[in-house]
């Protein structure tokens, strides 16, 4: 049984504000094979994402498997709107790194 980390399988892993109240995450693959592999593995699911970030599943407003771009996308509600006192990431674009080390079984 061989394992790979998500960053080895995905072409791009990113996060960005989707409006001022939400942060959206994209995991984009180069081709169908790795996309389908990760989809099937359920390593990325509402539950696994909620556990990873220590939030309630109800805070995940969207979860989409977007075939045309070989991408898995999910969106979470911000604790407080972007740029509020105490916010450490106004653009929301450095919230994705914990996804990079997620382990996926490849064989």
């Amino acid at each position: 049984m061989k394992n790979k980390k998500l960053y080895e399988l995905a072409k791009s892993v990113r996060s960005k504000n989707a409006g001022v109240d939400r942060i959206t995450f994209d995991v984009i693959f180069n081709e169908k094979k790795n996309y389908e592999l990760v989809k099937k593995s359920k390593v990325l699911s509402k539950q696994s994402v909620a556990d990873l970030f220590g939030i309630d599943e109800s805070q995940i407003s969207d979860f989409v498997e977007f075939d045309p771009a070989f991408a898995i996308k999910f969106t979470i509600q911000r604790e407080k709107p972007s740029g509020s006192f105490g916010d450490g990431d106004i653009f929301g674009c450095q919230q994705y790194p914990p996804l990079l080390d997620l382990v996926v079984k490849v064989e």
Binding site: S12, T24, V64, P68, T75
Partner: peptide, 17 residues
């Protein structure tokens, strides 16, 4: 490319559709 354009369709939005 198809990848870069389709990927952009979902950029900074909650929903790609």
């Amino acid at each position: 490319t198809i990848a870069s354009v389709a990927g952009h369709a979902m950029y900074e939005r909650s929903n790609p559709y």
